[in-house]
Every structure is written in structure tokens, then in C-alpha cells.
Design a protein around this nucleic acid. Sequence first.
DNA 1: CGATTGAACGTTTCGTTGATTATTTACCGC
DNA 2: GCGGTAAATAATCAACGAAACGTTCAATCG
Lengths: 213, 213
Amino acid sequence: MVAKDTMRTRILEAATKRFKHYGYAKTSMAEIAADLQMSPGNLYRYFPGKIDIALAIADEHHEKQFEDLTAIASKPGAPVIERLRDFFHADMVQTYRMIEKDPRTFELAQIIKTERPTWVNGQLLQERKLIVGLLQEGVDSGEFDLPDVAFSAEMLQSAMMKFRYPQLWTNLKLPALEREFDGVTQLLLFGLAGRTGTARTCRIEGVAKAEAA
Amino acid sequence: MVAKDTMRTRILEAATKRFKHYGYAKTSMAEIAADLQMSPGNLYRYFPGKIDIALAIADEHHEKQFEDLTAIASKPGAPVIERLRDFFHADMVQTYRMIEKDPRTFELAQIIKTERPTWVNGQLLQERKLIVGLLQEGVDSGEFDLPDVAFSAEMLQSAMMKFRYPQLWTNLKLPALEREFDGVTQLLLFGLAGRTGTARTCRIEGVAKAEAA
DNA sequence: CGATTGAACGTTTCGTTGATTATTTACCGC
DNA sequence: GCGGTAAATAATCAACGAAACGTTCAATCG
């Protein structure tokens, strides 16, 4: 007999393999069970339902991504603005690449989004805490001057939504997406009015590449 | 016999009535024809296909909306920033209200978006010209300092996409939408970095209302 | 001869039915 | 009670024939 926790991870491994290969819809609980030489009913001793297996997989992945983002957010020596931009940029590119690599991930994301929207909100909330931290840092260092950090973080996240799940909102290719990302980020950070400046020309290589493509 | 143009508008009237009542999908060419006491085949003398009838209706509506937006964009005496914000705000509220009033419109919009994406791009392009005009005015008056007005306009439009077809991107109610609109607009106009100022507190009534809801 | 028709054609949608599937429940050995 | 099974149930899916639809075109009308 294996420990309960081991069994759970074994189920997750088997499910991941099938989800990646055949997709969520075309994977049956019976198949996952068969892979582990058990009966379908037994899966329900470890997970309340099929969707919860997907959720656990997504959880795992999100945790890794969250660590990456935390690392970016707390990169020492870099100005807050730069870290903020890198933060959202990494978010966009990681998601884009992952979905590009295997479109099954996209299916999973869509299913989770429609069947467990609150879970998505939870992830967004967690990520927002990082943004709040960054903004607060910026306020403390004098880089930003914000009356309400939490509100600004929410708005920033809202404006960046389309770059967070790129393929969900648009079918632009990555270079075109990065061009838009750079442009919109520039606006969000420095605005249209006044204050044109040094940082405006950052990441221009990305723009040039996008226009060539 | 009636003039060709009269017939066209009669067809559009009949189609509009049915589309509003039963939706695009549940309206057949035969029904539109029957309403006008003609044969289905005859419709094709005036329109290349069913989708083109929908397009003509959308065209009509878009023209009206374009006039409204033009009026806002050229409102005399107002600062460019204010007109810009009102411009996008009007766009959002008009679309939201229209779709709220009869959801059939939403169906139409979605169908057009998937079957004639280039048409949508055309409308966006037309609208962008207004934005370019506004930005150029702002640059001339010294309100803005933009190296590339066309690029900025594109980015602005990209960032505002979610407020342009609200119900397509989110299911927030109008007050919550307006709160996000205000927050994001504030960022786009003035940015996170530096330059906190007078205009930051505009439209705060909208925010308060949204939070109460 | 231009305007109009309506039957014909290929495609899409629809409804039904039979099979799968997720999930539950009752049960077995330890 | 714990880890497991297997059969039962209820929901979903897939297939497939039928109906409806958008569109075309040869024939008809005025």
C-alpha cells in the first residue's frame, strides 16, 4: 500500500500524461484509473471529481510560475518600474509559450475558467499581492506617487489582462503582442500627458522585431 | 415597382425587425422575403448574402455612433485629455447600453466579428483617425509630448479594447466597468510614475457609485 | 429585356437515439 | 475504519437521418 499523498501524486502524474496527450475532454476517469490499475470509483477517494484533478495540476503549475514572478518582483538593485514591466512581460511570455508548446493546456485553461471562475480569481488575487508590494516599494522610494496602492494594482492588473492570457483575447503572434505590450506598458507607466522621458525608449528592440515580422 | 434604393431600405427595415425580435440565426431569408411579399431569391438582387444585410444594419448604426464620437472629439473649449476620456467613455457606455437593451445586438456583433473580421478592423481604423486627430491636437497644444502619434493612438485603442465591446470581454456590470474604466484611463493618461495631479480626481463620483453597488 | 420567381442543390442545423462517461452507492477483505 | 471494487445511475456525447437553410439559376412574367 502507498501513502495517501503518494497516491494523489500518482493520480496527478497519470492524469497529466493523458491530459497532455489526448486533452481533458478525451480523457476518461476510467482511463486514468486503468493506468494505475485501479477502478474508476476509487479515484473519488482522492479527488472530488474530474475537474478537481485538473485544478490540482493547474495549482502545481501556478505555484511554479508564482515563484518565478516573485523572483522577478524582488530582483535586487533594479528600479521598481523595470521590475514591474518585467513582471508582466514574463507573465505574458510564459503563458504564451506554454500554450504554444501544447495547445492542450489552452483547453484546460478554458475549462477551468468556465467551470471554476472563482479559482481563477483566487490566482489573480494572489498575483495582485505581488503587484501591491511592488507599487508600495515604488511609493516608498518616491518612484510613484499613488493615493491608493491597492486600487492602482487592481487597475494595472485589469489593463494587463489581455496580455496575461494572450491567446484567450487575441490571436496576435508573440512579436505583435510584445509590440502592443511595450506600447501599452509605456502608457500605463508614464501616461500620455507630460513627462516624456528616458524610459520611453526601453525595450525598443522588441518593437523593431515586431514590425519586421 | 419601387426604386432600387427604396427596396434596399425596405429589406433592411424588415430584416432589422426580425433580427431584433428573433435574432440573426433564427431569421431566415425566406421569412424576410415573405414579409415583403417577395421570393427569397429576389433578396439576392439587393444583397450578396444574408451576412451583408447584417453588415448594412451595423454600418448604419456605426455611422450614427461615429457622428456622436466626432462631436465629442471636437467639442470646443474642452482640454484634449477630457475629450479623449469622454470619447472612450461614450464609446463604452453606448455599446453597453445598446447590448443591454436588446441582447440580439450582441449576437449580431459576434457573428460579424467572426465572419467579417476585416469589417471590424475597418471600423476600428476609422475610429482611430479620430484618436490620431485628438492626439495631434494635444501635441500641438503642448498637452502631450508624443514621438509617434499614430503609434500612441494604436496603443490607446488596444488598451481600451476591453471597454469598447464591454460584454465581449467581461461580465462586469456598468458601474464596476466604469470604475475600471476610470482607473485604467487615469493610468493611461498620467501613468504610474511621477506627475500625480489635479486631473487624478476627475470622475470620482463614478468610482464611489461603483463601490457602493 | 429587366424584374421576379420558385424549385433544386449543397450545406448546416436539429432531434433522436444508443453508447459513454462521471459520479454514487452498496459491498468486500483487512 | 481504511483501501479498494463493481454495479447502478444519471448526465453527456456522438452518430446519423431528417429537416431547414442559404444560395443559385433556368424559367416566367409584365
